[in-house]
Amino acid sequence: MSKPEKLLDKKGLRLDGRKLDELRPIKMEVGILANADGSAYLEQGRNKVLAAVYGPKEVHPKHLALPDRAILRCRYHMAPFSVEERKSPAPSRREIELSKVIRDALEPAVFLEYYPRTSIDIFIEILQADGGTRCAGITTAALALADAGIPMRDLVVACAAGKADGKLILDLMDLEDKYGEADVPLAMMPGINAVTLLQMDGSLTLEEFEKAIEMAMEGCRKIYEVQKEALKAKYVTVKEETEE
């Protein structure tokens, strides 16, 4: 899509009609891949993300195994059809970097020390991208980890805040990310109030930066509730059916 003239209209609404501090509509589902130990699917606006988790299992190649804890491996990958112009399926520099960033954001949540000499593998597949896929990837992967029954300190949830046309905005979509002034992705564990990822791209004043973090955290807390409901959904419906 070409550069829009303005990112905010006269009423102060965004390109997709959202208010400044409004999240995109979000939908999550857990346990949708039968062959993985844990899995989750997420739609956030036009983002579509699938995550699968395998493990803990024996490490291959064996020399990577650690004697005192499990290793967490993560692959973030964009499908060739996830963007407007076909993306080569080979992992790009950006994807390799994001894989590492996402792994670092999830690692503090997992009790790796419980399962020495094993590996936990996470695969994040972006089926359709519309900005903020690293955040969507983290949120989905955390759900898949919980679905695999891996002990965690808390679910990890991520959300971005940023700046477009001089105003601070929440949950950036692709155009706002590309043509806006700043993007601050943040991942946290809301239950224990700990931030696991904080990046920034663009420029903000110190006050704006602090405000952006506040906004992103507020967004995270909202998504966290959806995440918890998604994890419980399967069991709640079974329970309701049996009680009828």
Binding site: A146, M152, D154, P190, G191, I192, K232
Partner: peptide
């Protein structure tokens, strides 16, 4: 009651 990781 049903709880999820991170619930106090």
């Amino acid at each position: 009651e049903l709880v999820t990781p991170g619930d106090l």
